[in-house]
Amino acid sequence: MISNLQRENLPSGMSLKRRDEIYGYLFIAPQMIGFLLFVLGPLIAVFVFSFQDRNLLLGQITFAGIDNYQAMFKDALFTKTLQNSLIFTAGLVPLNVLGGLFIALLLSGNLRGMIFFRAIFFLPVITSAAAWAIVWRFLLQSESGVNTFLQAVGIDGPNWLQEPNWAMVSVIVTRALKGVGINMIIFLAAIKNIPQDYQEAARVDGATGWQVFRRITMPLLAPAVFLVTVLTIIGALKVFDTIFLMTNGGPSNGTMVLVYYIYYQGFQFFETGYASALSVVLFLVMFILTLIQWQLRRRFVFDEQE
């Protein structure tokens, strides 16, 4: 590359390398300024705020030491919301990742009508999350909607959104239905990129369908699986709208997740200092999960670059 560069006409007084550097800085400048202003700055601020007693309504700001963190340990609702966030994530990730993979594999053959089905599974993705939640809130009533169907096949459906455990199941499944389409598309793309001859060659060598899947398809899909898993985990930990619109965090705070609790503390109770301390916890959870992901990735995904 360097040898090529030397052939170009140099502007007076400035080396080509130098000029290129300036372009480099110029190109990344908007992103880096934005990063400092809207990501790094606020991230530092959230740590600072978490050591303050802040109240939005009173406008007061005083140093509070580790009061907020101490309060957190005594706050049963905090423990519960953290748990709920993890349960939600643990429920959503397998549904969305394996579900997406399963649907993508079903759709990847050359059968007729696959485009039609692909569109159906993608429909909820382009529907706004608010619309999706509103509709499902109505469908998950105790005496109507989904339960009408269940009754028709002889199942007495639960009162979905009024019993804590079922409410959690409901919001997880609603969210999964909303998001599985995007994962399906990513998987379909990845499957399409697998060279057909690999599988053909394996078949010629006498491998069974399962063996082909296990030894050829799956390893080649591993990067996509990781990408989708990471995206789904982030999406699961930041879920807000679905829960806000379907259950308001209830019943008995059974669906109150950490992000919702941050919203509640910050913008309903106006305790923005405490809300910042909760945000720090959310950050740490993300951070730990990210580290784990990178470790796993190193172990399981071999093919980084083609």
Binding site: Q31, M32, F35, L37, F38, V39, L40, G41, P42, L43, A45, V46, F49, V230, I234, L237, K238, F240, V259, I262, Y263, G266, T272, A275, S276, S279, L282, F283, M286, F287, L289, T290
Partner: peptide
Amino acid sequence: VMLLTSLMMPIEVTIIPNFYL
């Protein structure tokens, strides 16, 4: 790498300071 560190960080983490900003 600086950017990468916040790749996994949703806006919800900084919603309070962002609000003040």
